[in-house]
């Protein structure tokens, strides 16, 4: 009996060694361990074994079975590994072949720039508002301290519709709408389309975009204006950006300033990009003129505020190094896909 067991084991191990495929291994399992397999057949001979030897033989049979099973399992694992390896090797692809195109569309560079600006100011607690593009003279000019005969109102600059209705020349008109709501404090930015009678060329467009900013509260100072816009410049153009404020004149702010940022290309040393100046003019700003506050029923003795206006196209052109304004309105996808 013992010899027979040994024989079965040897035979099984030999068959396992000689198996080349998983199928062959499976055949070994069936022929040796299966219901009609050699081991099962052997067990049928147990009846001839003396009762006292039976437990011992039974244990021997089980041991043989588990020994074969183990070898079989190991062989199977090895074999599976070989098969997998063969499959993987067969499935090798040329990873340098082109990607399958699943192109998403692209944002207009103006929008990309606007979203950056919005993010900065929303983070500082500013609400984004809008105003009408076709506007009353009062909101575009008069309420901003630009009286009837001011040169800025000349037809060569402003598109008129009829009577006191015109295409707004500046988003500053939204300042007035916001102040008239009578809800203070105000922290807002107002992006939008504006219009001026400029012929189309590489640096001019009769239609472009501005972002207006307005803060009105008690004790707002020129220092606050400087600090806020310095944060804005750093966020937009990089941590190392420096700002410079130069006195300027706008009818609706006093004091007024223009802000330059250090050239983000050369860091202020002077290069072709900043025309050797090291600085790039970026926006106009100032403290809201007391007369402007008064006209919108805000007491200038109690409240002060600052305002600023920045050209969106100017930011987009600078940031993305676009050299011709006309590209922004042609909508050639070869241009748009770069943003």
């Amino acid at each position: 009996m013992k010899d027979k067991l040994n024989q079965i084991k040897e035979e099984a191990l030999r068959q396992i060694r000689e198996s080349k495929t998983l199928e062959q291994l499976n055949e070994v399992r069936v022929s040796q361990l299966g219901k009609k397999g050699a081991l099962t057949e052997l067990l049928k001979g147990m009846k001839d074994v003396s009762p006292e030897d039976r437990p011992k033989i039974g244990q021997l049979v089980n041991e043989t079975r588990s020994e074969i099973e183990k070898v079989l399992e190991d062989a199977k694992k090895k074999m599976e590994a070989i098969v997998l390896e063969a499959r993987l090797s067969k499935e090798t692809i040329d990873v340098t072949l082109p990607a399958k195109s699943m192109k998403v569309g692209n944002m207009h560079p103006n929008t990309r720039a606007l979203e950056e600006v919005e993010k900065i100011f929303i983070g500082m607690g500013y609400e984004v508002v809008e105003g009408p593009e076709i506007e009353k003279d009062y909101y575009n000019f008069e309420a901003l301290n630009i009286p009837a005969d001011h040169p800025a109102k000349d037809e060569q600059d402003t598109f008129y519709i009829s009577g006191d209705i015109l295409l707004r020349t500046q988003t500053s008109s939204t300042q007035v709408h916001e102040m008239e709501k009578g809800k203070l404090p105000i922290r807002m930015i107002a992006p939008g389309r504006v219009f001026r009678a400029d012929e189309v060329d590489a640096t001019h467009s009769p239609s472009f975009h501005q972002i207006e900013g307005l803060v009105i509260d008690k004790h707002i100072t020129f220092a606050d204006l400087k600090g806020t816009l310095a944060v804005f410049a750093k966020e937009l153009f990089g941590e190392d950006t420096k700002v410079k404020f130069r006195p300027h004149h706008f009818p609706f702010t006093e004091p007024s300033a223009e802000m330059d940022v250090s050239c983000f290309k050369c860091g202020g040393k002077g290069c072709r990009f900043c025309k050797g100046e090291g600085w790039i003019e970026i926006l106009g700003c100032g403290m809201v003129h007391p007369h402007v506050l008064e006209m919108s029923n805000i007491d200038p003795n109690e409240y002060t505020g600052f305002a600023f206006g920045v050209g969106l196209e100017r930011i987009a052109l600078l940031k993305y190094e676009i050299d011709d304004l006309r590209l922004l309105y042609e909508n050639d996808v070869r241009f748009l896909r770069q943003f």
Binding site: F121, G123, M124, G125, E127, P185, K218, A223, D224, A230
Partner: peptide, 14 residues
């Protein structure tokens, strides 16, 4: 002129 940030009532940006 120094650079400061506006103080006063907080507002929600949106």
């Amino acid at each position: 002129i120094p650079q400061t940030l506006p103080k006063g009532e907080a507002t929600t940006g949106k």
